[in-house]
Nucleic acid binder design. Structure first.
Length: 160
DNA sequence: GCCAACGTTGGC
DNA sequence: GCCAACGTTGGC
């Protein structure tokens, strides 16, 4: 199993929204590096759900990949802001996965807190100016984040 | 293939 | 709201 981080603006779609809907296609990713990571995801992989443009910015919970990458439907919809006229059904340019909520953190583990953890030092997330919205997370960083959220690691391991 | 201009992201 | 950082576009 691999670990990932997904960014979302809570004003648009936060972890509470994921809990409300139960399952969500992670569409609208229009960056090649992020897309490539989406395509590496497998069902059962765990994702830290990161709130960007929030106060504080940080990880709000854990989601699970419940469907591996498939074509992002919005790229074919002319009315969508994510429409891509250069993409085709035969060779879709953009992909999405489906995710479902697993654990809501009692409180957000802030970006500030992550920056204070040695496990996050090498990550693109904590690098200044990083805008990547889908990125891999080292297992150590994943578990350190859950620990910082006050969650029992054994309990979480049992869930996943 | 270079690079300036532009639009977007996202912390603050 | 500001603005630094970054990715993309398009003229040449």
């Amino acid at each position: 199993m691999r670990f990932w981080l997904l960014k979302s603006e809570p004003d648009v779609f936060g972890f509470a929204d994921l809990v409300r809907v139960g399952r969500e296609p992670w569409n609208g990713v229009r960056n090649y590096q992020a897309r490539n990571f989406l395509r590496e995801m497998r069902e059962g992989d765990l994702c830290l759900f990161y709130h960007s443009n929030a106060r504080p910015a940080g990880v709000a919970g854990v989601a699970r990949v419940c469907r591996a990458a498939y074509a992002d439907d919005l790229q074919f919809k002319p009315d969508s802001k994510y429409f891509d006229p250069k993409s085709s059904v035969d060779a879709p340019r953009w992909s999405m996965v489906d995710v479902e909520p697993l654990i809501a953190f009692p409180q957000v583990v802030s970006l500030d807190a992550l920056r204070g953890m040695a496990e996050w030092e090498a990550s693109a997330l904590t690098r200044r100016g990083s805008r990547l919205s889908v990125l891999p997370v080292e297992p150590e960083a994943f578990w350190a984040t859950l620990d910082a959220a006050g969650l029992s690691l054994d309990e979480v391991a049992g869930l996943s």
